[in-house]
Design a protein around this nucleic acid. Structure first.
Length: 1068
RNA sequence: GGGCCAAUAGCUCAAUUAGGUUGAGCGCCACUCUGAUAAGGUGGAGGCUCUCGGUUCAAAUCCGAGUUGGCCCA
């Protein structure tokens, strides 16, 4: 880009961004930026790999934008940043998509299709999906190492998982065992608890009577899963609960039923009993040891058998006041808590259900039926056996497979675990080694989760995943004598077959057939693959390709920063901690930034499947990448959700447009004057700087300081607020407006050069500060400002440091006071009906404190200019200006303690009081009715407020909500003021007409002016020179063919005509 | 059902650390200004600070119980 080259009149995000993309490509901007920092201190960032399904949604976009802003910031701070992106490419979600694509219904279809083929399809699909994400992220302007992402399906990465797992095994933390797990009967695999999605469904709700074996009567249980009754092993009660025996009558027959006291009424109603009577009151403890008969003993002849089964036991999962009857049907072969209690009690674990949800032979007459389909038959059989007390249905939430939406079943199967419960203390200790933003996420949430985390079931009975690197002796499949392989090298060394460690693809189809023979024993591989959460859990070393590449691990590990949404507390934040601790004994990260989710504008969660979403591509189409990023990044990243908001997007676009206009305003002048920022640096023009130049430079310093502090605090949102406030409020609305006339001067001047140097510095540093947020517009502005003198890209710039030379707190405070006075003056003008165009003879500033006096004294000229006042009159705090009345404003922190519950009443009286003297005595008189005899007002309780006289308009001014004084505008008219006022009215209208004709700023004109009112005409004539100069009129004469318009100026008719002189000459 | 977080103007959010007359930006309405400006300025409308209780002279703020939303867990 050439320095001060022509730029677009209008900020056009789309064109600009395309231009910048091409430019980045031309100059290898990313590569240069990385290279530029290659000698810097290392910063190890680890990207949480998004799952490769579909395209980027708003949440992912927010996440990657946040990562981008911090990585760019860190680079500008000099760090050599690891920025390898990652993709999570294995797992059930992809398998089910591929199954859908191929029209498969279950595992048999896959087996027929062939494992190898199926794995290839999954690989292709995952790679395909990755492309969409890659191009989206790049399109959002995110700078990461896109040529070299880590992919969980690559051998180097899979090896990293093997290595981690084998490390855990070496530390004795890998174990195979029987557990109650959530099984998806369609996918025929265990799924993790956090993969279970709960949905409202209608299920059977039955009350079943279990006949007591050694005494009269039956106990009543309740269940929504009749299909688990065949596996019943015991019944649980609450030891401390209250139970009753009820003699109930229905259709003339009497029964003795036992159940919880709190539930008996409800249950008997369900059973439609005619009448009943409580005949016994017992504690749960008294029920313990009672034995009963299995209600389906005949239908399931091979039902569980063993010492102590079919008896009542205490269990802490029983509640006599909740759902059910206070007596809980317990089947250790199914439910998780049942399983735990069953094991404590030493019972055999009976589960007559296969991984496909079909009853096995052990289920007797139900063999071969899908369990849910058998519900009806089981209920019918219970009815026939006289065991069904009542049956109905219930709406409740029930777990479903996250991928295929099939209802899950709790069954007991053999699975492989990392026994993280053995290292709970280490885990809790390692939590302390990481700092979280926000802190409560770690201390209130993450720690709770870790404390209660069960062993990690890492095995899945599927195909598309990292195979478990576990080989077991041929004749057994448990964890005795297992061999766990840690690397490809080790695999090649130990297996019986020939394997090339460089070339081997570690997927299931290639390792399934490998065997190991050692000491005369042949080992075969456990056929399972890893839970996909294990894949990403090793990302902190997988990112570095460790262990196959060990060149960086020692220096970089653990990660300096990870940054994800709050759902990862139970996801990646946890899985990494678990794996890091199990494999290496340490937390794999030291800093966590946790953001929230992107919500719909109305606060609902976004959902792709329900088509409730804002597509980032639409946001880009409407406003551009910089705007979208700015919007996202202006939200608090610390744990809180963000509502998407189109108005907010528009506001950001407006801000960028303002920046664009600020940037392009001085360019024509700088070009015209041949301004060279290298020669005319700030140092060169130091002496010529005017107070406002020094002020805007001071503001720049405090903006930098503020931004850096916010960044260090992981509050990029506050940082960008500060920057935009500076650019929009201070630079655009104040500085540029004030400095305009200096730039218009036709002659060169030191003052003009000073203004150029100032705005040049301000713009150049501002775009550096903006660059991490809005990399495109920053790049274009930077390029135009620097030409050949800067880096090839703004992103190679250092983060701007505070330059002590320009820090000037006094000046900042002065100007904030002047601006407050100016604002009040504008208000007062409006009240007086006097436009800013018309001068006023004087403005009286009544200062409340010395600080205001100082500010006004130091900058009287500036204030006159800004207020368009001929004179500024200053009234010191100790003096007072005549003709004023006063009222009082109460300080509640003083009134409260002094007046107690009457403070409010006193406050109101003070507000309403009107007095001539601002004295406590006068005030006390005025509010005498609310004061009691012994009460007095104190100086500290009130501050006096002036009340404006009628002829003069006054408005209070203040800073940060504190009153600092009053600005009174004297709006009286004199002939001289009217003369200038009307002249300015003429000037403005001529300017507008010049604009109508699209005349160049320099273009000379001939002007024809006729004013109906003689008095006004004379007044305007007094300012002929001023008018001619301002509108660049060289001739005053009749204009025949020019642009002609009639204006009404406050009731005075003016006819104005003009033509361009060059055009007039050409036509003659 | 449990844990955590949030709830303040039509919208997005401050103010909560340390209790003291609730603020900004955007949007809306009116007026106004404009040779960098899809801008700017002034004013206005708009708030039982989610509800109910408690502590206190005084609560958006502290405490308790709810309601709604989000995340996580069951």
């Amino acid at each position: 880009m050439s320095r001060f080259g022509e730029v677009d009149d209008q900020y056009d995000p789309d064109e600009l961004e395309q231009r910048v993309f091409e430019y980045w490509d031309d100059v290898d901007a990313y590569e240069q930026t990385v290279e530029h920092r290659s000698d810097g201190e290392s910063f190890f960032f680890v990207d949480g790999p998004p799952y490769t399904s579909g395209s980027a949604h708003m949440g992912t976009t927010w996440n990657k934008s946040l990562k981008d802003v911090y990585l760019r910031y860190l680079r500008m701070q000099g760090y050599d940043v690891t920025d390898r992106p990652g993709y999570d490419m294995h797992g059930l979600p992809i398998e089910t998509r591929v199954e859908e694509r191929l029209g498969f219904e279950n595992k048999k279809d896959i087996e027929e299709f062939g494992e190898e083929n199926f794995i290839q399809e999954c690989k292709d699909y995952a790679n395909e999906q990755l492309e969409g994400l890659q191009s989206d992220f790049q399109d959002f302007g995110v700078w990461m190492d896109w040529d070299n992402p880590y992919k969980t399906l690559e051998p180097e990465y899979m090896e990293a998982a093997w290595w981690g797992f084998s490390n855990a095994a070496d530390r004795g933390l890998v174990e195979q065992g029987h557990r109650s797990i959530s099984q998806c009967p369609r996918c025929e695999t265990a799924i993790a608890n956090n993969e279970v999605e709960y949905e409202d469904v209608e299920d059977p709700s039955i009350y079943v009577k279990f006949d007591l074996a050694e005494r009269e009567g039956s106990i009543v249980i309740w269940t929504t899963t009749p299909w688990t009754i065949p596996a019943n092993t015991f019944v649980a009660v609450d030891e401390d609960g209250d139970y009753v025996g009820v003699r109930a009558e229905k259709d003339g027959e009497e029964e003795l039923l036992y159940l919880a006291d709190a539930k008996h009424e409800e249950v008997l109603k369900e059973g439609r009993y005619d009448d009943y009577e409580i005949v016994e009151e017992l504690s749960g403890e008294e029920l313990i040891g009672w034995s009963y008969e299995h209600p389906l003993a005949e239908e399931v002849p091979d039902h569980v058998d063993g010492e102590g089964v079919f008896e009542i036991y205490a269990a802490d999962y029983v509640d006599t006041h909740g759902d059910g009857t206070g007596l809980v049907h317990s089947a250790p072969g199914h439910g998780e808590v049942d399983f735990e209690r069953g094991r404590e009690l030493g019972f055999p674990i009976f589960c007559p259900v296969g991984g496909d949800g079909v009853y096995t032979e052990e289920a007797g007459k139900y063999e071969g039926q899908f369990v849910k389909d058998a519900d009806d038959e089981i209920m019918a059989d219970l009815e026939d056996n006289g065991a069904l007390l009542a049956s109905g249905t219930v709406h409740h939430s029930y777990g479903h497979c996250w991928r295929c939406d099939t209802g899950i079943l709790q069954i007991v199967t053999d699975q492989w675990f990392i026994t993280i419960t053995d290292i709970k203390d280490d885990l809790l200790e390692n939590i302390e080694d990481s700092e979280w933003h926000p802190e409560w996420a770690r201390d209130s949430r993450f720690r709770d989760f870790v404390e209660e985390a069960p062993d990690w079931n890492v095995s899945r009975q599927r195909y598309w995943g990292i195979p478990l690197p576990v080989w077991t002796p041929e004749d057994r499949d448990d964890d005795e004598d297992m061999i766990v392989i840690g690397t490809r090298e080790e695999l090649a060394d130990r297996v019986d077959q020939d394997v090339d460690p460089e070339a081997v693809d570690l997927h299931k189809d290639t390792v399934d057939d490998l065997t190991i023979t050692e000491d005369g024993t042949t080992y075969t591989r456990v056929p399972d693959v890893f839970d996909v959460w294990l894949d990403s859990s090793v990302a902190s070393w997988g990112t570095l390709d460790y262990p196959s590449d060990d060149s960086r691990f020692d220096e970089l590990w653990p990660a300096d920063l990870i940054l994800e949404a709050h759902d990862q507390t139970r996801g990646w934040f946890w899985s990494q901690l678990g794996m890091g601790t199990a494999a290496l004994g340490e937390s794999p990260y030291t800093e966590v930034l946790m953001h929230g989710h992107a919500l719909m504008p109305d606060g609902r969660a976004m959902s792709k499947s329900k088509d409730i979403l804002i597509d980032p591509h639409e946001a880009i189409d409407r406003h551009g990448r910089d705007v979208m990023r700015l919007f996202l990044l202006s939200n608090n990243p610390q744990g809180e959700d963000m509502r998407f908001d189109w108005d907010g997007m528009q506001t950001m676009e407006n801000h960028l447009r303002t920046l664009w206009n600020v940037f392009r305003f001085p360019l024509p002048y700088m070009r015209l004057d041949g301004f060279d920022p290298q020669q005319t640096s700030l140092d060169e023009v130091d002496d010529a700087l005017e107070p406002l130049d020094e002020w805007v430079l001071a503001r720049l310093q405090s903006t930098k300081a503020e931004m850096t502090a916010h960044f260090e605090d992981f509050r990029q949102d506050k940082a960008v607020d500060a920057l935009l406030e500076f650019v929009v409020e201070d630079v655009s609305r104040f500085y540029v407006q004030a400095v305009r006339e200096r730039m218009w001067e036709e002659d060169d001047s030191a003052s003009k050069q000073a203004a150029y140097a100032t705005i040049y510095r301000v713009l150049r540093e501002s775009v550096a500060l903006l660059a991490p947020y809005a990399p495109f517009i920053s790049e274009e502005i930077y390029g135009t400002l620097t030409g050949e003198d800067g880096f090839d890209t703004v992103h190679m710039e250092d983060w701007p440091d505070v330059d002590e030379h320009w820090v000037d707190e006094q000046l900042e405070e002065d100007v904030s006071l002047l601006r407050a006075i100016e604002e009040a003056g504008a208000n007062a003008r409006q009240q007086a009906g006097r436009k800013l165009r018309w001068p006023v003879p004087r403005v009286v500033v009544a200062a409340d404190d010395e600080r205001v006096v100082e500010a006004v004294e130091r900058h009287t000229g500036l204030l006159e200019e800004r207020l368009n006042a001929r004179e500024i009159e200053l009234v010191s705090p100790e003096d007072r200006w005549g003709e004023l009345q006063y009222s009082a404003e109460a300080d509640m922190s003083e009134l409260g303690p002094a007046f107690g519950d009457r403070a409010g009443q006193v406050m109101n009286a003070l507000n309403e009081a009107r007095i001539d003297e601002p004295s406590l005595e006068a005030l006390e008189d005025a509010v005498a009715d609310v004061l009691e005899d012994d009460e007095e007002l104190e100086e500290s309780m009130v501050s006096f407020v002036t009340q404006t006289p009628d002829d003069i308009a006054g408005t209070a001014f203040g800073t940060d909500g504190d009153d600092r004084g009053v600005a009174y505008v004297d709006a009286s008219l004199t002939a001289d003021i009217e003369s200038e006022g009307y002249a300015r009215e003429v000037i403005r209208r001529v300017q507008e007409m010049r604009k109508d004709l699209d005349l160049d700023v320099e273009e000379r004109i001939a002007l024809d002016l006729e004013i109906d009112d003689d008095r006004v005409a004379d007044l305007v004539a007094e300012r002929t020179d001023l008018i001619n100069e301002e509108v660049r009129a060289d001739e005053r004469r009749a204009v025949e063919d020019g642009h002609r318009k009639e204006w009404d100026v406050d009731g005075v008719t003016m006819e104005i005509a003009l033509e361009a002189l060059a055009a007039a000459e050409a036509s003659e």
